[in-house]
Design a protein around this nucleic acid. Structure first.
Lengths: 355, 355
DNA sequence: TTTTGCACTCTTACCGTGAGAGTGCTAAAT
DNA sequence: ATTTAGCACTCTCACGGTAAGAGTGCAAAA
């Protein structure tokens, strides 16, 4: 399996077979142990019978093309971002996971719980088996169907709204009201709303509420009026800010190239602010299959030296969200990619079986 | 305001006034800039007209008593854990917060929302104004009153249970059932349970359910049976593991004495596992007022070089949980202590006003 | 086109040195 | 009996020099 290219600046045919082979070897070597790779090492490791000098020439060419880089005169070479791109898009062959691993993932995801917990668990699992940071976005709820709405009076002017969305997502909100509502009013209101809106998606419901409000001037049953008053607040778009779950951040502290407190702090802060990471993830929500962001390619400089491997997850062909893994550019892509891929699929299945 | 002592190994009267004065000065100096403090510096900074040599003698005595420590021969002195203890318990005078600060805290806490969000917000605020890590435990729910229970059918064998506890805490659980329940069955069951158990605390309810189960053999109305079946699962004790909210961990990355990736990793991991931290916090749940844990005093070696300042928060005289701040032993106690103190009180007020 | 040989560069670890900071001790001063 | 001055001592830290090692690039030979 070879990944489809995202941006193809390099013409594969322009590069001799042998150079590509050596390049691939070099990247693999570097991913393995993080040290710049020199010509001697490479000569020893390949079955091509070549002298270090020849390999030096090849490496010089590759450097010219912008695929490699020397930290300094007498260090070996290290892949550039462009180099990683080429490697990942055209050279890498991922291993299929063995059955035991697949089994393990399936096992981990099959428990029957609400969606939030399931996603949390997925994130944990991703970080555990990759030893990197796992990330899973919560689904946008707009396009999903309301299953049930319920009101509970908390105090004179505070009402708890419970929205059940799509059979497995539960959302609680508290709304403040201008007057006291009796339990039976609330009961009737929720009956009315459930009858009218259950099964519709939230965006539609919001629109529906507005049109009801207009009609209300004319013929107003008391029940309807209460219901609509409630609903107006209850269905307000709320950006919880709680848009993804992250796990295993501490795994990143083991990675040598990120092992600088300043850098780590910036990275962790951007995890907390969520904004940048969210932007990045949104970019991949409509990609088919696994997508890979390398280093600051995407323009977020906190992600310097980091790669993000993502895949959307879906139920019934509808994309709900994105999951993936954040780690150093120097990660074992051939292992991480299929893990992300399979996990996304399994999560889709797990969510589907809940209906 | 002087804090009451927790363990008093040092007899204050055994130490000359002057030594105490110098000791206090030294600790304050060290807290200020983190460098070991030498005799010259101290001689310069005090208004006592003493030569460095005299001060050296005093310092030697203090070291003898185990209050100070020299990193090496020709460094200045640094407080030991025992030294901090003395400082915090007997020497420190905390500044009252100025009105602007109190105002700010009140402002931050007065929004009317559910308890979980309020606690999250409190934690954030603590970390923001102290520039350290803020922590707030979620209340143990056993002793609190059930306000309302509600069942929603999700699919044939899955039912959503919504528990409203104490007017402001909401808990969702999903339970699996052996057979299909109709909506009206669920409705009747919840009516029954609400009528029977609303206002009682969860522990009592669990006990009540057991005794109902026994009685059931005799006279069984269908409704009751359903209700008790549901309730049995619904009120199972669940340790969510989600027992405290932490904020501002990244603030700890600025602290020089923790600025070692290994150490930070251990610390963050213990935050994630929650167990140790929770144990520590539980120790202070029945203390009156602010309590301070210094370094590995409490036996958790991840907290080496860290102090934890806590205070329980309460509503109507009943302690709900604990909040506080985690930072380096070298923190500005005279500022942090009143912040934690006031925040706990304000949080109590904020929670109270919700009823 | 590939290889050999070689000079060159850069990093890293190691060592020795000297300045600076702070100590402890002894003897003198108050 | 304290306090102080004087002084030798110790330890850290920053600096510079050196030598080893790794890897390069280039020119000339194969």
């Amino acid at each position: 399996m070879t990944l489809n290219t995202m941006q193809q600046k390099i013409d594969l045919n322009q590069i001799p077979e042998r150079s590509l082979h050596l390049f691939k070897l070099l990247v693999e070597h570097f991913i393995q142990d993080g040290q710049p790779v020199g010509s001697r090492t490479l000569a020893r490791d390949t079955d091509l019978e070549l002298s270090p000098a020849t390999i030096r020439n090849v490496m010089a060419d590759l450097e010219e093309m912008g695929l490699l880089h020397s930290p300094h005169t007498s260090a070996g070479r290290v892949p550039t971002v462009k180099g990683y791109r080429l490697f990942v898009d055209s050279l890498l062959r991922v291993h299929a996971l063995n059955e035991r691993e697949i089994e393990h993932i399936a096992e981990e995801l099959k428990s029957r719980q609400d969606m939030q917990s399931l996603l949390q668990r997925t994130s944990n699992m991703l970080s555990d088996i990759t030893r990197l940071a796992g990330i899973v976005t919560l689904p946008r709820q707009d396009q999903h169907a309301l299953k049930h709405v319920e009101f509970v009076s908390l105090s004179d002017d505070r009402i708890l709204v419970i929205l059940v969305i799509n059979d497995n997502q539960i959302q609680n909100r508290i709304i403040n009201t201008a007057r006291v509502y009796t339990p039976s009013e609330l009961q009737q209101a929720s009956n009315y709303l459930n009858q009218k809106f259950a099964g519709k998606d939230l965006a539609t419901i919001r629109a529906g509420i507005l049109s009801e409000l207009k009609r209300m001037k004319d013929n107003v049953s008391q029940i309807m009026q209460t219901a609509i008053e409630m609903a107006q607040q209850a269905f307000l778009k709320n950006d919880t800010g709680d848009d993804f779950v992250l796990a295993g951040q501490t795994n990143l502290m083991d990675v040598a190239e990120l092992c600088d407190v300043e850098r780590l702090k910036k990275l962790f802060n951007s995890f907390n602010q969520k904004r940048d990471i969210l932007h990045l993830l949104e970019q991949s929500i409509h990609a088919r299959g696994v997508q890979i962001f390398i280093g600051e390619e995407a323009g977020y400089d906190v992600l310097d030296n980091c790669s993000v491997v993502t895949s959307p997850y879906e139920v019934d062909g509808q994309i709900l969200g994105v999951l993936g893994v954040i780690g150093p550019t120097r990660m074992h892509y051939e292992r991480v990619i299929p893990i992300v891929d399979i996990t996304a699929k399994m999560l889709g299945l797990a969510l589907n079986s809940q209906n």
